[in-house]
């Protein structure tokens, strides 16, 4: 990592700590700061519900946002490099709608609902597995199409089409589902970092860490892929194996986040651009760590914005992320002649 990368990493880490604290202290229910601190230390507080809220809602939510942000941003970066396409991302390529479909199928087959299913380990695993298979199938399809379609834009459109098909499959599933199921599906579809309970959190963290670790191990071939597949191959990169590992890593990361937080949009697409613009490099040695940290920052920030209305409710996550993400993409597109990494 170069000096700039280290500086930004430290800065972002400090920012993350600050945002985690903010996420613990603020929520839709007003809890005095000292009560939050005492709850965290495991001490008695005036109201039992406060301790419950801190431990069962705010702590898991903050950690989930931290991990989700990193996971989505990381998979976005990997997709952009794999397809040599700055506009690739898990939501644009239809990969998280593949995960949606997997989850919806598991839900219907299991008879449960997405929102309540999976408190047990087996329930958790079946949902993750469904999401994983769903996202891998779409990812595989996109990879297959990428061998046929050379134009980046056409490939993106193909991804969007696949997204539509999976969406209509999900609508069809909803048609046969119970009213209760449809409602919980709709809630889930709005995105929410509160989908992981304290009991599920360790599993969620392990899977996410696994995907992120795999991403970090792929830094060297990712850099080679900037030269295109044939150059990378000449530099000793096993293209097939690397693509498969990238597929598995993005598959795990997209699946796990989508299964529990819903189809969170724009973080995967926009954050890698924010990181590149900040660092001024597409060298993954510093770009990947900074992207992961920036993803966490953005996700924690979005989670804070969601609770702004206070007692009256929570803004859906997917109403916030596009407001932050879309302007970044528009900026990047307008300035693409000036931005180095496009040329």
């Amino acid at each position: 990592m170069n000096n700039k990368g280290i500086t930004y990493s430290i800065l972002l880490t400090v920012l993350i700590l600050f945002l985690i604290a903010a996420n613990l202290f603020f929520g839709s229910v007003d809890i005095p700061a000292d009560a939050v601190i005492r709850s965290l230390w495991g001490e008695e507080v005036e109201k039992a519900s406060w301790s419950f809220i801190v431990w069962e809602a705010r702590v898991p939510q903050a950690i989930t946002a931290l991990l989700c942000g990193a996971a989505l941003a990381g998979s976005g970066l990997m997709l952009q490099t794999t397809f040599n396409n700055p506009l690739a991302g898990p939501s644009i390529l239809g990969i998280n709608s593949g995960a949606n479909l997997g989850v919806a199928l598991v839900m219907l087959a299991g008879g449960g609902t997405i929102a309540t299913g999976g408190i047990t380990l087996s329930g958790f695993l079946s949902i993750v597995l469904g999401a994983f298979i769903g996202s891998m199938v779409v990812m595989g399809l996109i990879l297959f199409f990428s061998t046929l379609i050379k134009s980046n834009i056409m490939l993106l459109i193909t991804g969007i089409m696949i997204g539509y098909i999976t969406s209509s499959a999900i609508s069809l599933l909803n048609f046969f589902a119970t009213a209760e199921g449809v409602h919980s599906y709709m809630i889930w579809g709005m995105g929410n970092f509160g989908g992981v309970s304290l009991e599920q959190l360790p599993y969620f963290a392990i899977f996410t860490a696994l995907g992120l670790l795999l991403a970090i191990l792929l830094i060297k071939p990712l850099n080679a892929l900037l030269l295109g597949a044939r150059y990378a191959e000449n530099l000793g990169v096993n293209i097939k194996r690397t693509r498969n590992l990238l597929l598995i890593s993005t598959g795990i990361l997209t699946a796990i986040t989508t299964a529990f937080c819903g189809p969170v949009s724009f973080i995967g697409l926009a954050v890698p651009h924010i990181a590149r613009l900040m660092l001024g490099t597409s060298n993954h040695n510093s770009l990947l760590p900074v992207t992961l940290l920036s993803g966490s920052v953005v996700a924690l920030l979005c989670n804070l914005i969601c609770i702004l209305p206070g007692e009256s409710g929570i803004i859906p996550l997917n109403a916030v992320t596009p407001v932050l993400g879309a302007p970044v993409i528009i900026y990047v597109i307008i300035n693409q002649r000036r931005i180095q990494y496009f040329n």
């Binding site: 900037l226 030269l227 295109g228 490099t281 597409s282 496009f342």
Partner: peptide, 11 residues
């Protein structure tokens, strides 16, 4: 090669 590369953001 004559292949297009995507290294504009590298020094």
């Amino acid at each position: 090669l004559t292949d297009k590369t995507f290294t504009g953001g590298l020094t």
